[in-house]
Each structure stands twice: as structure tokens, then as C-alpha cells.
Nucleic acid binder design. Structure first.
Lengths: 222, 222
DNA sequence: TTGCTCCAAATTGTTGACAATCAATCCAAG
DNA sequence: CTTGGATTGATTGTCAACAATTTGGAGCAA
């Protein structure tokens, strides 16, 4: 989505982006301690900017820091993942309600086109998890944009988005729900097109809580 | 609530707390530029810890920073305030739903007692805005705790809470709704006590959206 | 007067050295 | 053998100097 390459402005920002990437992809394991000296040398920068980057990631909830004892990558246990999906249920449900009120007909049409493209990609790649995930995130991001609420957009596309990608990486493609998800996306978009805010919110909530049920089932059986 | 005095651990944390306080109380005006040198000397610390504090506040959404041009206090215009109240409507409504499912009977009883105390304080202080605000925040905080969702608690008691206090400070006691608010609090608690999650969520949503309507009306007439 | 160029001052970004704190180890006393 | 405490090592926190970038204005030409 926003794939800003290596040309950020400051070293702190570069380090922040690199750390985020490393945490999401699992290059830095959950709960791992972040050694300032180690990371600074690995990134080829001084400890100053690195510390600022860590402070920023702390504000974003990706690391936890205890004074004089260092920072650790946040650990996503079952509880925090359940919490995350619940918060998403609340926020994305509400975003969906707002989107039903504010999205233009043109935006809705384009989003429908996007869903159809996703469908074709799924047919072509026969269930490769990558397209599934990216397509799913795309749809949810467009809904967030449709809410016309910048704070909501920042929350969903920022902190929660990063954590969600960590979850996705951890649970990999445990549950292959791409067909069902796509169908539900269409239903949600139908509700939005009909300007039925109540229904749109309810469907999005079910979509997300259903995803969580599926994931938690898969996890406890494995 | 959490009135941690001057004994934080590190200078960065102290500076962070002091900056937050200064921003909320309006000592630092909205949109004002944060000069590192100036603040560092005022706080009696070096620029290093101060920069870390600013980075942290950036992550919390209290300041906006543009590379090589400095950080500014976030500005709360009507749009962002509306956005804030909408996000609260979504999150606190959901928290209320969870609270109806998870709060113990004992917690509910204590919360009822708290509301009664608030009522007496209001009678005694005859509408002093301070008690109104603090009491209101107390109730909402307890509801958040009742959700048993730590992420929700962190959001509501952290970033959103600070922004809300900024709003309260800015709009002062424009709308004296303490009586009405207290009555609605009782109704919400009734719904929770009856374990009626749907009603509890709906009432909390109306409570918050009503508060926003009242505030925005007051603002456009002034 | 207007607009441009270029310079300089002020501010932010970065660094390496120094101080403070915590954790583990080792030694000695009971 | 255990326990208590001091010591040492590593890691985090802090500082002041240095480098890089932006911004504002002085100077000059059209």
C-alpha cells in the first residue's frame, strides 16, 4: 500500500520503518529483546536515532519498554489477538456504517470492480495466501477511507493494521476462507450501495467476528 | 486518576508527562511550535531525552512532526473533535456491550455507589465543572475496565482520553449537561445490570453522540 | 516595486563519550 | 553447603559538541 522505500527523511524514520518491517515479518521474534547497541550497528547508525525509533514504536504499541531494562517486541498471545479482533469489530463496523452514509456512488462502483479483480486473482493463483491477505486488507482499507473520519482511518491503517499483519503472519493461512470472505465483502458492499447503514455495520461485525472464530478454532486444534 | 507525580524513572518519561500535561491544560497552545532548545532549557534537561519524549507524543497523536521543521501541538478543529467523538461512540459503545457480559455483580454495585457519590458532589458543588468532568471520566473508565479488553482499555484510557481532556479544556463547560449525563449513566448501568448488551451499547452510543450534538451546537452559536 | 539569488543564522538531526543503573558472578562468612 | 554482599560487566540513560538542512532576509537586477 504505502511502500515508501529506503528514502525516508531522517535516520530515525528509516530505522522506525525497518524495525516495523522486521517485527511484522517475524525477523524479530515476538518477545525478543531489542539491544540498542546491536541494532544500531546492524543498521549502521548511532544509538540516538535508534532510541527515538524505539520510542515511536512504543507509542504505536509494537514494542514494550521498561526503564533501564530495554525494549522487547510485543507478544501476540491468544488474548491480545482476541482483543485486536474485537477492537476491529467495533471500529470497522462503525466505519462501515459511516461509509454507507458518505461513500460516493463512484467509489462504490470502483470498490465493486476491485472485488471482481480479487476474485479473478484468486481463481488464477488458486488460493495463494498472499493475494488473499492483500486483497482483504485492500477492501477493509477502502471502507475505512469511506468513513471520512481521519482518526478512524489512522487507527485502522496504522497501529491496528500493523498488529493485524503480525497476526496474519503468525497464523499464516490457517483458515482458507477466501471464498467466504469475498462473498461477505460483496454482501457488505451491497448494504453500503443500498445506503443501509445498520445492515452494513452488522455484516461487517459478523465478518470480523466470524474470522476470529475461525482463527481461534484453528489455533486450538493445532 | 493516575496522578504519577514527578517521580517517573527517566528524564524522557518525566518530560513526556510534563509535555502531555502542558498540552492538555493549554499551557502549550494548539498549533504552537515546540522548540527543542527552548523546552530543554525550561525543563532543565538536554535535548536528547526531550526529542525522545516528542517522538513518544507523536506516537500518541498529541503532536505532529515534520522532518527538519520541528514539532507542533496538534490542533483540535471541529472536524477532529467530531472524529474523536465518533471513534469514542464506536469504542465505548462496544466496551459497554462487553461490560454487560463481563462485569461482576460486585463491580456493578460499586459503580452504582460511585454514581450516587457523583450525584452528591454535584449537589454540593452546585455545578462546578471540575467534578462534572472528573466524575464523567471516572464512569467511562470503569466501563472500559469492565470490557476486560486490555487493548480497548489502553485506547480509551490513553490516547483518546488525553485528546478528550483537551476538548473538555477547550470547550470548558459550554454545555452544562451534568444532570442529564448522570441520568443517562444510571440508565446505562441498569442495562448492564440486566445483562442487556444490545441496550447497553445503544444507550452509550446515544449518550456520546448526544454529548457531541450539544457541544457542536454550543460551538456554532458562540 | 517585484522577483530572484545567495548567504547566513537558527533549528533540527546525528554522533561519540560519559554517567547511572541493573544483573550476574564470585568470594567469604556462618 | 548455603547465604549474603560486594564487585564487575554489560546495558541503558544523558549530555554536549558537531553536521546537515531549512528558512528568512539582504542585496541586486529587471
Amino acid at each position: 500500500m504505502t511502500a515508501q522505500l529506503d528514502e525516508e527523511k531522517t535516520l530515525s524514520d528509516k530505522a522506525s520503518a525497518r524495525l516495523t518491517q522486521a517485527i511484522i515479518t517475524g525477523e524479530l521474534v515476538q518477545g525478543q529483546k531489542l539491544s540498542e547497541a546491536d541494532l544500531a550497528t546492524r543498521f549502521g547508525i548511532s544509538r540516538g536515532p535508534l532510541r527515538e525509533a524505539i520510542r515511536q514504536l512504543e507509542g504505536l504499541g509494537l514494542v514494550t519498554r521498561v526503564p533501564h531494562a530495554g525494549a522487547r517486541v510485543v507478544t501476540l498471545n491468544d488474548d491480545t489477538m482476541r482483543n485486536l479482533y474485537q477492537v476491529r469489530e467495533a471500529l470497522e463496523g462503525f466505519a462501515c456504517r459511516m461509509a454507507a452514509q458518505h461513500m460516493t456512488d463512484d467509489e462504490i462502483k470502483k470498490l465493486r470492480t476491485l472485488l471482481n479483480e480479487h476474485e479473478m486473482q484468486i481463481d488464477a493463483s488458486a488460493g495463494q495466501a498472499y493475494y488473499q491477505s492483500e486483497g482483504d486488507l485492500d477492501f477493509h482499507f477502502q471502507i475505512a477511507l469511506g468513513s471520512r473520519n481521519q482518526m478512524l482511518i489512522d487507527l485502522l491503517a496504522g497501529e491496528l493494521y500493523q498488529l493485524l499483519r503480525m497476526c496474519r503472519y503468525r497464523t499464516s493461512n490457517l483458515a482458507n476462507r477466501t471464498r467466504l470472505a469475498l462473498q461477505q465483502h460483496h454482501q457488505i458492499l451491497d448494504a453500503i450501495a443500498n445506503r443501509d447503514a445498520d445492515l452494513a455495520e452488522m455484516l461487517m461485525r459478523r465478518h470480523i467476528s466470524g474470522a476470529w472464530k475461525s482463527i481461534s478454532q484453528m489455533m486450538e486444534t493445532s
